[in-house]
C-alpha cells in the first residue's frame, strides 16, 4: 500500500511525532511505500537540525534524516508553518536576512499543496496529532 503521512506535533512533547516515525519505519520494513511525509503545525520542529537531546534519548530528527537517506523518503515541511516557528532552510534564511538556518538533512520546505497531493496520490493518508 502507498501511504501518505502527516505529522502535526513536535518531538518530545507529544508521542504522536514518535509514533509517526515508528509507523513509517514499520511500513517500509513491511514492504509498503511511503509517498510523502508532511510536517505541519508544531510538527515542523521534527526537522530542526539544532535539536540536541540527551544521549540516552532517541534523536528523532536524526532518525528521520537517516530513514530518508536509506529509503529516499520525501520529507516535506510546510513553509508557512515553518517560518512562523523559526524553522528555515538556507534559501529562506537568506531571503529574510536571518543569520542562521536549521533544516536537517533529508527534509525540504514546500507548500501545503504537497499535503493535498499526498492525499490524492496515496492510498491512505494517516494523520499523527494530538
Amino acid at each position: 500500500m502507498k501511504f501518505g503521512i502527516m505529522v502535526n506535533t513536535g518531538p518530545y512533547t507529544h508521542q504522536a511525532a514518535h509514533t509517526a516515525y515508528q509507523f513509517t519505519r514499520a511500513a517500509l520494513a513491511s514492504g509498503h511505500e511511503i509517498y510523502r511525509v508532511f510536517f505541519y503545525h508544531d510538527g515542523v520542529h521534527n526537522a530542526s537540525r539544532l535539536t540536541v537531546p540527551p544521549q540516552d534519548e532517541n534523536n528523532l530528527i536524526q532518525q528521520w534524516s537517516d530513514l530518508a537517506d536509506a529509503h529516499n523518503l520525501d520529507l516535506v515541511v510546510c513553509v508557512a508553518a515553518a517560518q512562523r516557528r523559526g524553522l528555515l532552510d538556507a534559501e529562506t534564511a537568506a531571503r529574510h536576512g536571518k543569520d542562521a538556518h536549521n533544516l536537517a538533512p533529508g527534509f525540504r520546505i514546500s507548500g501545503l499543496g504537497q499535503l493535498v497531493e499526498a492525499g490524492i496520490e496515496a492510498d491512505r493518508l494517516l494523520v499523527f496529532g494530538d
Binding site: Y40, H41, A80, A81, G111, L112, G113, L115, V116, G119
Partner: peptide, 19 residues
C-alpha cells in the same frame, strides 16, 4: 491552539486542487 487557523489554510489549499 493554532490548529484551527492552520487547518483553514489547508482547507483553502485543498479547494484549489478541485477536490
Amino acid at each position: 491552539t493554532g490548529y484551527a487557523a492552520e487547518a483553514l489554510e489547508a482547507v483553502l489549499m485543498t479547494a484549489a486542487f478541485d477536490q
